[in-house]
């Protein structure tokens, strides 16, 4: 297995985590989150702040999770009485505000120049064992997250989420607290995204505000919608597919002899065009949601 393939696979796993996290929000709870990338950023900045202030990686992951939960609670507070589309724009705005803060508070975050030199996870292992172990770790993380999401959504809790998505008034009348359901889902999703961010920071070894622009959120959206909203496997497949397509666009360019700016246009077309095509002609995605799938009834 070539090193490039290992790299693409690692990135695919991390995007898989982000995609699972977003899918939990939109696919199950009906939360239109356009600020997903900032939840990921909580993880990367947890790692980077812990590293630049010599607190050690354990503090890093704890910081990342704490940030993520705080942001999730703030998002949930906003969502308490907002319509889905208003909330979407509000999360986009909050993510941008947080990115601007991170970009400017040099003393804490390293500012626009970011923080480099964050240690690799298996940095002292010989090659290719290091990258392979990293891949194994990412796969394990993805599998755990998948199991967790499955467990969550096939329980009574998952049914409540779906009920809230489809018939919010009915769910409320049955005694479910909608705001509690929303904030719990957001917190679980935030922790998953922050975990991806933490591993990403220790894999790429660099954390900066440019990684937190809104277009990253839209990429994750495309993964979920193309894979299939409301289906965990779909979200993962979507992420893997998009990451591989993204990574292999340059090869297409090489093979066809296209100028390099077409790579940018092609990537945009892949995300935008792919997303649009699926929304119009196959809204359920590659792997549709399975209705009536529960363990405990």
């Amino acid at each position: 297995m070539s090193e490039f393939l290992i790299h693409v696979a690692i990135m695919a796993c991390l995007y898989g985590l982000l995609s699972l996290s977003l899918n939990l929000q939109i696919g199950f709870a009906g939360l239109v989150n356009f600020g997903q990338v900032i939840l990921f950023g909580c993880g990367t900045y947890g790692a980077s702040i812990a590293f630049s202030h010599q607190l050690g990686p354990v503090a890093g992951i704890l910081l990342g999770i704490t940030f993520a939960i705080l942001v999730a609670l703030a998002f949930a507070r906003l969502g308490r009485n907002l319509g889905a589309d208003y909330w979407g724009i509000a999360t986009l705005a909050m993510a941008e505000v947080l990115r601007i803060i991170v970009n400017n508070e040099d003393w804490l975050t390293g500012g626009a120049q970011g923080v480099g030199g964050i240690p690799l996870i298996f940095g002292d292992m010989p090659r290719p064992a290091g990258p392979l172990l990293t891949l194994a770790l990412c796969l394990a993380l993805l599998a755990c997250a998948w199991w967790l999401c499955n467990r969550l959504t096939t329980s009574r809790y998952g049914l409540a989420l779906k009920l809230m998505r489809e018939e919010p008034q009915l769910a409320a009348s049955l005694g479910y607290s909608l705001s509690a359901l929303k904030s719990q889902t957001l917190m679980v999703a935030a922790v998953l995204a922050a975990a991806a961010g933490f591993v990403f920071a220790h894999y790429v070894t660099f954390v900066g505000p440019d990684q937190l622009v809104a277009s990253e959120t839209f990429l994750i959206w495309a993964m979920v919608v193309i894979g299939g909203t409301g289906n965990h496997l779909g979200a993962i497949v979507g992420a893997i597919l998009m990451q591989f397509l993204f990574a292999y666009v340059p090869f297409v360019k090489d093979a066809l002899g296209l100028p390099s700016e077409y790579v940018a246009a092609m990537r945009l077309m892949l995300v935008g065009g792919g997303l649009l095509a699926f929304l119009m002609w196959r809204t359920q995605g590659l792997i549709p949601e399975r209705v009536g799938e529960t363990r405990h009834v």
Binding site: F4, V204, F206, P250, V263, R267
Partner: peptide, 23 residues
């Protein structure tokens, strides 16, 4: 010289650098 686009984003740049080195 094979020129790759980074798209101005670190993950794509890293993809590109790894492609150049390993492939």
């Amino acid at each position: 010289v094979i020129v790759e686009d980074s798209g101005g984003r670190a993950p794509s740049a890293l993809d590109a650098a790894k492609k150049l080195v390993t492939v």
